[in-house]
Every structure is written in C-alpha cells, then in structure tokens.
C-alpha cells in the first residue's frame, strides 16, 4: 500500500522533475545545512561593544519593555525587590533552578520570597536568566531546560529577565552560532523563546494594548558592562 508520505514525495518530485537521487542536488542541500550561510546582516547590529549595549537598551525600551542597567549580578535581588515594591506587588517571585540565579546573593533582599519551579499561572512575577540579548531588535533569547521552565516566560504577569551584558549579541545569527557551540550542530533545546517586549494585541479595532495572554510587563535586568 502506498502511504500518504510516498504520495506527497512522489507528487513533489514529479512537479520538480526530480528523482531525489541526483547527487548535485543532494550535495547542495547538505552543503547549505552544514554551512548555514549568513545572509544580509543589518549594519546597525555591527557595533563596538559599548554602542551595542546602548542599542540593545534603546530597542528593549522601544518594544515597551522596561530596563535596569546594574553594575553587578550582586545587585539583582535588590533590584527585583525594588521593582515589585514600586508596583505594589507582593514581594514574591518564582524562578527556575538555574545555577546562575541560585548563586545570586538573595540574602541582600531579606524580604523577598523566592520560589523555584515552573509556573502554573498563579504567580504574579517570574524570573529567568536569558541565554542572550539581541541588540538589533531588543530581543531576549530564552532556552528551555531543566533549570529554565518555558512557562516562566509566558504565564506570570511580570516577567523579569537577567541579561548579562557580555551575552548581548548584535544580531540573531551570532546567537545561533553560540547555540550550536553549546548544543552541537543541528540540535536545539526543546523551546527557544525570542521575546521582544511584553504581550500585546491589536485585534480590537486595531488599538494596540499591552498584556494580551502573556506577561503584561517585561523587565530586563541588564548586568555589567560590555566586554
């Protein structure tokens, strides 16, 4: 019996006038995947480190997110406590088991309750550590894994994200190179979330409103200086 898979492949090959066995075609595809050539990279992403950080900050804010630039990771717990207090939110935050977050000096914000685990939708604030930031669009890149639940990126009303300045890349392609170096060629974590600002919708009369289904606020805690 011919499977639907066979029918679809046969139909595609008939239309292309190909058998699928042509060596040059196969080589071209193999080369493209192995070489993953970069296309056009916007010049605005190609900047010296300090200006790249400035562009990242500008683009994050242009996407309606907020941003604190902290001198050191040690400042993160206090910055979180301050963020929550200023918005009249309870001093509670949920985070993943990421060792980079575990190593923060939580004692510096003694009133802050820190919970660990995935979100079930009942938390007002969640904290994640970004794999990278992308200056050209003000995007943060989140990778899923045992220590980094994807639900934290989407369910809490307020999503706070630690981004280390050294991890801010100019463009998307640089981040793919780093992910390949970390995970191997052809492999991605289960979920990669690029997040550019807080959730929004313009589905009612083209009026843009923040806080559709994902976080109503995205707050970036940018740490350290550019390298």
């Amino acid at each position: 019996m011919t499977s639907s898979r066979d029918i679809v492949f046969a139909s595609v090959r008939r239309a292309l006038g190909a058998t699928g066995q042509e060596a040059p075609r196969r080589q071209e595809v193999a080369d493209r995947i192995a070489g993953h050539p970069r296309g056009i990279i916007p010049a605005r992403a190609d900047l010296p480190p300090a200006q790249k950080i400035d562009l990242f900050k500008d683009m994050v804010r242009a996407a309606d997110a907020t941003l604190d630039h902290l001198a050191s990771v040690a400042d993160v717990p206090l910055a979180i406590a301050t963020y929550l207090r200023e918005r009249n939110l309870p001093p509670t935050i949920l985070r993943g088991a990421d060792p980079r977050l575990a190593a923060l000096p939580w004692a510096s914000a003694p009133n802050l309750d820190v919970w660990i685990g995935p979100s079930d939708g009942r938390q007002l604030a969640g904290l994640s550590h970004a794999f990278a930031g992308i200056a050209e669009s003000g995007t943060v890149v989140m990778l899923s894994g045992p220590d980094n639940p994807s639900t934290l990126n989407l369910l809490p009303d307020h999503h706070l994200v630690v981004v280390e300045a050294a991890d801010v890349a100019g463009d998307y392609e640089t981040v793919w190179t780093r992910i390949r170096a970390a995970y191997g060629p052809g492999v991605l974590p289960r979920t990669v979330n690029w997040i550019t600002g807080p959730s929004r919708s313009a589905d009612i009369e083209q009026t843009l409103l923040l806080g559709a289904h994902g976080p109503r606020s995205l707050h970036v805690l940018l740490v350290g200086a550019a390298l």
């Binding site: 003000g138 045992p146 990669v192 929004r200």
Partner: peptide
C-alpha cells in the same frame, strides 16, 4: 522590527524538563 514572541519548538520535552 520583530514580533513579541518568536517560539522555536523542537520535539517534546527532554529528560529533566519541568514543563
């Protein structure tokens, strides 16, 4: 410049994933 969420999904949850 970029939509808010661009989500890349590859397979089901991995060993040790909590969601």
């Amino acid at each position: 410049d970029m939509s808010v969420y661009t989500t890349f999904s590859t397979g089901p949850r991995r060993a040790g994933d909590v969601d």
